[in-house]
Design a protein around this nucleic acid. Sequence first.
DNA 1: GCCAACGTTGGC
DNA 2: GCCAACGTTGGC
Length: 133
Amino acid sequence: MNYFLVKSEPETYSWTQFAKDGKTMWEGVRNYAARKNLRAMQEGDLVLFYHSGEDKAVVGIAKVAKAAYQDPTIQEDWSVVDLSIHQPLQKPVTLAQIKVEKKLQNIYLIRQGRLSVMPLEKAEFELIVKMGS
DNA sequence: GCCAACGTTGGC
DNA sequence: GCCAACGTTGGC
């Protein structure tokens, strides 16, 4: 079991919309590092859902419903995965909270601000989930 | 609205 | 293969 975090601008695709959809094709990744991480996702892996922009907070947990496959909307070599709802966080975990948490200083969210799909250690994932419950 | 970080493109 | 120019992301 592996753990990840994906970012989305709520104006583009919000957790609220995701909750309505129940399941979505995670598309639009156009960055090689992010693509590599996307392709590492296996069915059943858990994925934190982060709102960038206005919110700047982790708002829920998604589950990989289908591992990476060719983006059906384009010819070029980019991948998508299917994500389904796992569960919302009871309260959002903000970037500010993450930044002051010692054990989370090394996560990509902080170290490499622009990366949109990133892996997390199990302990990091569990800590953020705990902070949101 | 600004700017830092950083990825991509294209000329050489 | 290097690097300048440029574009994009995302926090502030």
